[in-house]
Amino acid sequence: MSTTSTETRARSGVEVRLEDLRKVYSGVTALDGLSLTIGQGELVALLGPSGCGKTTAMRLVAGLEEANGGRVVIGGQDVTNLGANKREIGMVFQAYSLFPHMTATQNVEFGLQLHKVGVDERRKRAREMLDLVGLSAHSNKYASQMSGGQQQRVALARALAIQPTPGCARGFATRSAASSSRSGSRPFSSPTTRKRRWPSPIALGS
């Protein structure tokens, strides 16, 4: 697995393909044959009324739900039966999901640590990512000491951090994350940074 993931991650952007995805929650059909191809570096927004399956689709891509039918193909690799921890999908959750016992820096470093990134590299990367979301001043704060929007930005930094090279990441952000980023006074350091660093593809939904 490690070889494959390194190969996949080394590419600059990957294609995400959903093929005839089906998901049924105890009698309720949440997804009924969703097919969607997101090209390399493409920015896609999933829109629709509440309960139409936007979150379900993203959870299936991240591997947090098991599909009742269909396939998820990321970068040419069929990941339908792969666990969430092996998919390398950065996810920002609707609910606040920072680890309460860790500071912002430690939250961002957590994923890097699991990917066996060395201490120095980890520190550097965490600093970069927190800088990217405009929170370098809050790096030693715990979730309980930050506002909701700040917490969501740390979660975004945490999701982006596990991608080794900027620009090749596969990021997923929920709508609440996007809106909380927008509502911040200075969400990102600059638009150019955002253009350069923002991973592709990104799906925005709610």
């Binding site: 591997g63 947090l64 998919r87 999901s97 680890f99 957590f110 699991l114 945490r158």
Partner: peptide, 19 residues
Amino acid sequence: IDIKTLSEAARSLGAGWLT
């Protein structure tokens, strides 16, 4: 604690169940 969200977040960051 919101154990579901926390464990899903950790899983998507690459953590196995033991971690």
